[in-house]
Amino acid sequence: MKRFDYVRANDVGEAVAALAASPAARIIAGGTNLVDLMKYDVETPERVIDINRLPLNTIEATESGGLKIGALVSNADLAYDSRIAERYPLLSSALLAGASPQLRNLATTGGNLLQRTRCYYFYDTGTPCNKREPGSGCPAIEGVNRIHAILGTSDQCIATHPSDMCVAMAALDAKVHVIGPGGERTIAFEDFHRLPGDMPEKDTNLQPGDLITAVELPAEDFTAHHSYLKLRDRQSYAFALVSVAAALKIEDGRITQARLALGGVAHKPWRDTEAEAMLKNSTPGVASFSAAAAKVLETARGYGENSFKIDLARRAIVRTLKQAADGTPQSQTDKRIR
């Protein structure tokens, strides 16, 4: 671990000022990913700014009828919050599909947004990696890539975003509240994370000096028809090979609203609005679900070991949409897939 200066911020203003003074600093909240990466010498900040004293740990109703989740709300508190569990069960489910109870107690909402990839090479400083060391190369493309991306990849990077929470937030059309040197602003979830392109070192569109303060969920919820299905190499405590968040509104046997996002397949939570548009006004069933899945995977590309994800994602989309349509969301404790 590289030695660093430790700064404890007592309010948002202090944190923003500290960040402005050293834009290369890292924010520490739960620390579950940052400390992990610092011990591997993947993250080597000169300065670490502790924001745990900031008043960003509440969940509040918004004027437009949604909820605003403070950046420091832990994954556990968020998953079990009664308003979230009742109105946004998709988000609760995704949170509970991720990590472990003890990690969820530490990990925060803001930190989860900034989780970095699980790519083996990114984590191993004994190997090249364009994300960790731009220009050094991407051995994953012709190497061990079972867990890597099939959508939105570049010839520089095929890493995936590992979050479950973010997949549900993408499907729920959340917004990210940020405060930076230029003041406060919101970023649509779709625009928050990036594809690797030729700058794989950049995971998000945050600007230097930005601090995430909250994530806002819009009023529109999907309580009747939703499901989060996570497929992985063991039954718990593992990152997704493929995960699917599906949310539907169904009236008189027709889909009137559809949301579909995938995890484990791309450098960002992969929401496909075109597939959603195809689902809208269709009759729920294997035919429409399969068509939507085909749409999502139209541009998918495998790299050898991960090529199975294309078929797996297709199957998972169909199944998750069926779970959502049937009102039988996937349980995160009963491992039988509904």
Binding site: R118, Y120, D124, T127, I147, D233, R234, S236, A238
Partner: peptide
């Protein structure tokens, strides 16, 4: 039978999933 496999990158001659997150041993839920 179902989970454990250490992946070697033969180009680099190196085992790559050298941790408990990516080398899967059974957990309680299994």
């Amino acid at each position: 039978a179902l989970e454990e496999e250490t992946f070697a990158d033969h180009n680099l001659g190196r085992f790559m999933n050298h941790n408990f997150a990516e080398y899967h041993v059974p957990v309680n839920a299994d």
